[in-house]
Design a protein around this nucleic acid. Structure first.
Lengths: 138, 138
DNA sequence: ATCCTACACTAGACAATGTCTAAGTCAAGT
DNA sequence: ACTTGACTTAGACATTGTCTAGTGTAGGAT
Protein backbone atom coordinates (compact mmCIF):
# COMPACT_ATOMS: atom_id res chain seq x y z
CA UNK A 1 0.00 0.00 0.00
CA UNK A 2 1.52 3.24 -1.10
CA UNK A 3 -0.10 4.89 1.91
CA UNK A 4 2.24 2.98 4.09
CA UNK A 5 5.30 3.78 2.00
CA UNK A 6 4.35 7.47 2.03
CA UNK A 7 3.95 7.49 5.79
CA UNK A 8 7.32 5.86 6.21
CA UNK A 9 9.08 8.18 3.83
CA UNK A 10 7.56 11.04 5.78
CA UNK A 11 9.21 9.69 8.89
CA UNK A 12 12.64 9.76 7.32
CA UNK A 13 12.77 6.23 6.06
CA UNK A 14 15.17 5.83 3.20
CA UNK A 15 13.21 4.04 0.51
CA UNK A 16 14.93 0.96 -0.84
CA UNK A 17 13.85 -1.88 -3.05
CA UNK A 18 14.17 -4.27 -0.11
CA UNK A 19 11.94 -2.27 2.18
CA UNK A 20 9.38 -1.78 -0.53
CA UNK A 21 9.22 -5.51 -1.16
CA UNK A 22 8.83 -6.38 2.53
CA UNK A 23 6.07 -3.82 2.95
CA UNK A 24 4.33 -5.11 -0.15
CA UNK A 25 4.50 -8.71 0.99
CA UNK A 26 2.95 -7.80 4.32
CA UNK A 27 0.19 -5.75 2.79
CA UNK A 28 -0.40 -8.18 -0.03
CA UNK A 29 -1.93 -11.01 1.93
CA UNK A 30 -3.73 -10.32 5.12
CA UNK A 31 -2.45 -13.36 6.88
CA UNK A 32 0.00 -13.65 9.74
CA UNK A 33 3.37 -14.56 8.31
CA UNK A 34 6.51 -15.57 10.13
CA UNK A 35 9.73 -13.72 9.38
CA UNK A 36 10.93 -16.61 7.25
CA UNK A 37 7.70 -16.73 5.31
CA UNK A 38 8.06 -13.03 4.60
CA UNK A 39 11.60 -13.70 3.47
CA UNK A 40 10.51 -16.54 1.20
CA UNK A 41 7.92 -14.34 -0.50
CA UNK A 42 10.31 -11.41 -0.74
CA UNK A 43 12.96 -13.54 -2.43
CA UNK A 44 10.55 -14.26 -5.27
CA UNK A 45 10.51 -10.59 -6.18
CA UNK A 46 14.02 -9.66 -5.17
CA UNK A 47 16.23 -12.75 -5.20
CA UNK A 48 19.23 -11.23 -3.48
CA UNK A 49 17.40 -9.93 -0.42
CA UNK A 50 19.00 -11.25 2.76
CA UNK A 51 17.45 -12.71 5.85
CA UNK A 52 19.00 -10.04 8.04
CA UNK A 53 17.34 -7.28 6.05
CA UNK A 54 13.94 -8.90 6.39
CA UNK A 55 14.40 -9.21 10.14
CA UNK A 56 15.64 -5.64 10.40
CA UNK A 57 12.82 -4.25 8.31
CA UNK A 58 10.17 -6.15 10.21
CA UNK A 59 11.66 -4.88 13.46
CA UNK A 60 11.55 -1.33 12.18
CA UNK A 61 7.96 -1.65 11.05
CA UNK A 62 7.06 -2.91 14.50
CA UNK A 63 8.88 -0.01 16.21
CA UNK A 64 7.09 2.41 13.97
CA UNK A 65 3.78 0.89 14.94
CA UNK A 66 2.90 -0.11 11.40
CA UNK A 67 2.92 -3.83 12.04
CA UNK A 68 2.22 -5.93 15.12
CA UNK A 69 4.24 -8.79 16.47
CA UNK A 70 2.15 -11.75 17.53
CA UNK A 71 3.65 -14.41 19.78
CA UNK A 72 0.84 -16.93 19.93
CA UNK A 73 2.98 -19.96 20.51
CA UNK A 74 6.55 -20.88 21.16
CA UNK A 75 7.32 -21.11 17.49
CA UNK A 76 8.30 -18.17 15.35
CA UNK A 77 6.90 -14.71 15.89
CA UNK A 78 4.26 -13.72 13.38
CA UNK A 79 3.66 -10.32 11.86
CA UNK A 80 0.26 -8.73 11.58
CA UNK A 81 -0.13 -5.90 9.09
CA UNK A 82 -3.49 -4.98 10.57
CA UNK A 83 -1.98 -2.65 13.17
CA UNK A 84 -4.37 0.24 12.88
CA UNK A 85 -7.54 -1.51 13.89
CA UNK A 86 -7.49 -2.95 17.41
CA UNK A 87 -8.30 -6.63 17.44
CA UNK A 88 -7.44 -9.90 19.09
CA UNK A 89 -6.58 -13.37 17.87
CA UNK A 90 -8.12 -16.80 17.61
CA UNK A 91 -5.52 -19.54 17.23
CA UNK A 92 -5.88 -23.17 16.23
CA UNK A 93 -4.10 -25.31 18.78
CA UNK A 94 -3.34 -27.97 16.15
CA UNK A 95 -2.26 -26.21 12.98
CA UNK A 96 -1.47 -22.74 14.33
CA UNK A 97 -3.83 -20.89 11.98
CA UNK A 98 -4.65 -17.38 13.21
CA UNK A 99 -7.81 -15.36 12.71
CA UNK A 100 -8.42 -11.76 13.71
CA UNK A 101 -11.41 -11.37 16.01
CA UNK A 102 -13.22 -8.43 17.59
CA UNK A 103 -14.76 -9.50 20.88
CA UNK A 104 -17.00 -7.27 22.93
CA UNK A 105 -16.13 -6.34 26.49
CA UNK A 106 -13.29 -4.28 27.85
CA UNK A 107 -10.65 -6.42 29.54
CA UNK A 108 -8.63 -3.40 30.59
CA UNK A 109 -11.52 -2.21 32.72
CA UNK A 110 -11.80 -5.70 34.19
CA UNK A 111 -8.43 -5.46 35.92
CA UNK A 112 -8.96 -3.71 39.26
CA UNK A 113 -6.26 -1.47 40.72
CA UNK A 114 -5.69 -4.01 43.47
CA UNK A 115 -4.48 -6.43 40.80
CA UNK A 116 -2.09 -4.06 39.08
CA UNK A 117 0.85 -4.29 41.47
CA UNK A 118 1.83 -0.71 40.76
CA UNK A 119 2.27 -1.41 37.05
CA UNK A 120 1.31 1.20 34.50
CA UNK A 121 -0.89 -1.02 32.36
CA UNK A 122 -1.11 0.11 28.78
CA UNK A 123 -2.31 -2.78 26.71
CA UNK A 124 -4.21 -6.04 26.75
CA UNK A 125 -3.83 -8.92 24.41
CA UNK A 126 -6.52 -11.59 24.29
CA UNK A 127 -5.80 -14.93 22.64
CA UNK A 128 -8.59 -17.40 22.13
CA UNK A 129 -7.50 -20.98 21.59
CA UNK A 130 -9.42 -23.78 20.00
CA UNK A 131 -9.54 -26.12 17.04
CA UNK A 132 -10.29 -24.89 13.55
CA UNK A 133 -12.90 -26.61 11.33
CA UNK A 134 -10.19 -28.16 9.15
CA UNK A 135 -8.34 -29.76 12.04
CA UNK A 136 -11.60 -30.83 13.72
CA UNK A 137 -12.55 -32.72 10.55
CA UNK A 138 -9.23 -34.53 10.32
CA UNK B 1 4.99 -30.46 47.09
CA UNK B 2 4.49 -34.08 47.93
CA UNK B 3 0.89 -33.70 46.79
CA UNK B 4 2.13 -33.23 43.28
CA UNK B 5 4.50 -36.16 43.44
CA UNK B 6 1.73 -38.37 44.82
CA UNK B 7 -0.65 -37.35 42.07
CA UNK B 8 1.94 -38.10 39.46
CA UNK B 9 2.88 -41.45 40.89
CA UNK B 10 -0.82 -42.30 40.89
CA UNK B 11 -0.84 -41.64 37.18
CA UNK B 12 1.91 -44.12 36.53
CA UNK B 13 4.81 -41.74 36.61
CA UNK B 14 8.01 -43.54 37.45
CA UNK B 15 9.56 -41.54 40.27
CA UNK B 16 13.18 -40.57 39.66
CA UNK B 17 15.57 -38.20 41.34
CA UNK B 18 15.52 -35.97 38.25
CA UNK B 19 11.75 -35.63 38.15
CA UNK B 20 11.60 -34.99 41.85
CA UNK B 21 14.11 -32.18 41.54
CA UNK B 22 12.33 -30.53 38.63
CA UNK B 23 9.01 -30.68 40.45
CA UNK B 24 10.60 -29.27 43.59
CA UNK B 25 12.21 -26.40 41.72
CA UNK B 26 8.90 -25.44 40.15
CA UNK B 27 7.01 -25.62 43.39
CA UNK B 28 9.75 -23.99 45.40
CA UNK B 29 9.52 -20.49 44.03
CA UNK B 30 6.26 -19.25 42.68
CA UNK B 31 7.81 -17.38 39.85
CA UNK B 32 7.69 -18.06 36.15
CA UNK B 33 10.93 -19.72 35.18
CA UNK B 34 12.26 -20.51 31.73
CA UNK B 35 13.35 -24.06 30.97
CA UNK B 36 16.99 -23.06 31.29
CA UNK B 37 16.37 -21.37 34.62
CA UNK B 38 14.75 -24.55 35.85
CA UNK B 39 17.76 -26.46 34.61
CA UNK B 40 20.16 -24.10 36.35
CA UNK B 41 18.37 -24.55 39.67
CA UNK B 42 18.06 -28.29 39.21
CA UNK B 43 21.78 -28.64 38.56
CA UNK B 44 22.51 -27.21 41.99
CA UNK B 45 20.80 -30.16 43.62
CA UNK B 46 21.60 -32.82 41.05
CA UNK B 47 24.71 -31.81 39.13
CA UNK B 48 24.47 -34.44 36.43
CA UNK B 49 20.92 -33.69 35.33
CA UNK B 50 20.78 -33.01 31.61
CA UNK B 51 19.05 -30.30 29.68
CA UNK B 52 17.04 -32.85 27.71
CA UNK B 53 15.59 -34.32 30.88
CA UNK B 54 14.48 -30.94 32.11
CA UNK B 55 12.79 -30.20 28.81
CA UNK B 56 11.15 -33.63 28.76
CA UNK B 57 9.96 -33.39 32.32
CA UNK B 58 8.54 -29.92 31.84
CA UNK B 59 6.76 -31.13 28.73
CA UNK B 60 5.26 -34.02 30.64
CA UNK B 61 4.11 -31.81 33.47
CA UNK B 62 2.42 -29.58 30.93
CA UNK B 63 0.71 -32.55 29.23
CA UNK B 64 -0.50 -33.76 32.58
CA UNK B 65 -1.95 -30.36 33.29
CA UNK B 66 0.19 -29.79 36.37
CA UNK B 67 2.06 -26.84 34.97
CA UNK B 68 1.20 -24.18 32.41
CA UNK B 69 3.29 -22.96 29.54
CA UNK B 70 3.33 -19.21 29.19
CA UNK B 71 4.52 -17.59 25.97
CA UNK B 72 4.36 -13.92 26.87
CA UNK B 73 7.09 -12.78 24.58
CA UNK B 74 9.25 -14.06 21.80
CA UNK B 75 11.92 -15.25 24.17
CA UNK B 76 11.86 -18.57 25.95
CA UNK B 77 8.68 -20.21 27.15
CA UNK B 78 8.05 -19.87 30.85
CA UNK B 79 6.50 -22.40 33.18
CA UNK B 80 3.80 -21.59 35.66
CA UNK B 81 3.29 -24.02 38.55
CA UNK B 82 0.00 -22.35 39.43
CA UNK B 83 -2.02 -24.53 37.05
CA UNK B 84 -4.96 -25.31 39.28
CA UNK B 85 -6.27 -21.83 39.79
CA UNK B 86 -7.32 -20.06 36.59
CA UNK B 87 -5.59 -16.75 36.19
CA UNK B 88 -4.03 -14.42 33.67
CA UNK B 89 -0.76 -12.54 33.41
CA UNK B 90 0.57 -9.06 33.74
CA UNK B 91 3.91 -8.60 32.00
CA UNK B 92 6.45 -5.82 32.24
CA UNK B 93 7.35 -4.72 28.73
CA UNK B 94 10.83 -3.69 29.87
CA UNK B 95 12.18 -6.38 32.18
CA UNK B 96 9.79 -9.22 31.38
CA UNK B 97 8.61 -9.72 34.97
CA UNK B 98 5.35 -11.63 35.19
CA UNK B 99 2.60 -11.37 37.80
CA UNK B 100 -0.48 -13.55 38.12
CA UNK B 101 -3.71 -11.55 38.02
CA UNK B 102 -7.38 -12.38 38.37
CA UNK B 103 -9.43 -9.93 36.35
CA UNK B 104 -13.21 -9.87 36.42
CA UNK B 105 -15.28 -10.34 33.28
CA UNK B 106 -15.64 -13.37 31.06
CA UNK B 107 -13.79 -12.94 27.78
CA UNK B 108 -15.06 -16.26 26.43
CA UNK B 109 -18.61 -14.96 26.59
CA UNK B 110 -17.46 -11.80 24.82
CA UNK B 111 -16.65 -13.64 21.61
CA UNK B 112 -19.85 -13.95 19.58
CA UNK B 113 -20.49 -16.96 17.39
CA UNK B 114 -20.14 -14.78 14.33
CA UNK B 115 -16.50 -14.22 15.28
CA UNK B 116 -15.62 -17.86 15.84
CA UNK B 117 -15.13 -18.94 12.24
CA UNK B 118 -16.35 -22.44 13.02
CA UNK B 119 -13.61 -22.96 15.62
CA UNK B 120 -14.33 -24.95 18.75
CA UNK B 121 -13.03 -22.38 21.21
CA UNK B 122 -11.87 -23.89 24.47
CA UNK B 123 -9.67 -21.39 26.18
CA UNK B 124 -8.79 -17.72 26.52
CA UNK B 125 -5.54 -16.25 27.58
CA UNK B 126 -5.37 -12.61 28.59
CA UNK B 127 -2.04 -10.84 28.80
CA UNK B 128 -1.85 -7.36 30.24
CA UNK B 129 1.24 -5.38 29.30
CA UNK B 130 2.70 -2.41 31.04
CA UNK B 131 5.70 -1.16 32.96
CA UNK B 132 6.45 -2.39 36.46
CA UNK B 133 7.26 0.03 39.32
CA UNK B 134 10.95 -0.89 39.24
CA UNK B 135 11.37 -0.15 35.55
CA UNK B 136 9.24 2.99 35.78
CA UNK B 137 11.59 4.34 38.44
CA UNK B 138 14.72 3.66 36.40
C1' DA C 1 16.89 -60.23 47.86
C1' DT C 2 17.74 -60.48 43.09
C1' DC C 3 16.59 -60.20 38.35
C1' DC C 4 14.27 -58.20 34.22
C1' DT C 5 12.62 -55.07 31.33
C1' DA C 6 10.43 -51.14 29.94
C1' DC C 7 10.91 -46.63 30.87
C1' DA C 8 13.99 -42.89 31.95
C1' DC C 9 18.47 -40.40 31.62
C1' DT C 10 22.78 -38.60 29.45
C1' DA C 11 25.78 -36.28 26.16
C1' DG C 12 25.92 -34.22 22.36
C1' DA C 13 24.49 -33.58 17.55
C1' DC C 14 21.04 -31.23 15.17
C1' DA C 15 17.23 -27.86 13.99
C1' DA C 16 14.82 -23.53 14.05
C1' DT C 17 14.73 -18.84 14.92
C1' DG C 18 16.87 -14.69 15.70
C1' DT C 19 21.10 -11.35 16.21
C1' DC C 20 25.42 -9.33 15.04
C1' DT C 21 29.50 -7.80 12.30
C1' DA C 22 32.52 -6.23 8.70
C1' DA C 23 32.62 -4.79 4.31
C1' DG C 24 30.37 -3.26 0.25
C1' DT C 25 26.28 -0.49 -1.89
C1' DC C 26 23.16 3.06 -2.81
C1' DA C 27 19.33 6.84 -1.84
C1' DA C 28 18.90 11.31 -1.61
C1' DG C 29 20.51 15.88 -0.35
C1' DT C 30 23.90 19.30 -2.14
C1' DA D 1 27.42 14.07 -10.35
C1' DC D 2 29.34 13.72 -5.85
C1' DT D 3 29.35 12.53 -1.19
C1' DT D 4 28.00 10.50 2.88
C1' DG D 5 25.81 8.01 6.10
C1' DA D 6 22.19 4.90 6.23
C1' DC D 7 21.20 0.43 4.22
C1' DT D 8 22.24 -4.32 2.67
C1' DT D 9 24.78 -8.58 2.34
C1' DA D 10 26.75 -13.12 3.63
C1' DG D 11 27.64 -15.69 6.94
C1' DA D 12 29.19 -16.46 11.68
C1' DC D 13 27.21 -16.67 16.05
C1' DA D 14 23.64 -17.08 19.91
C1' DT D 15 19.62 -18.93 22.02
C1' DT D 16 16.09 -22.12 22.56
C1' DG D 17 14.34 -26.41 21.74
C1' DT D 18 14.37 -31.44 19.74
C1' DC D 19 16.15 -35.91 18.70
C1' DT D 20 19.03 -40.14 18.97
C1' DA D 21 21.86 -43.90 20.42
C1' DG D 22 23.63 -45.84 24.14
C1' DT D 23 23.45 -46.45 29.26
C1' DG D 24 21.15 -46.62 33.66
C1' DT D 25 17.47 -47.69 36.91
C1' DA D 26 12.59 -48.05 39.22
C1' DG D 27 9.69 -51.10 40.48
C1' DG D 28 7.15 -55.34 39.55
C1' DA D 29 8.03 -60.38 39.09
C1' DT D 30 10.36 -64.32 40.86
Amino acid sequence: MSDLLERLRGRGWRMTAQRRVVAEVLNGEHVHLTADEVHARAVVRLPEISRATVYNTLGELVSLGEVLEVATDKRAKRYDPNAHQPHHHLVCARCGAIKDVHPGGNPLADLPDSERFGFTVSDVEVTYRGVCPNCAAA
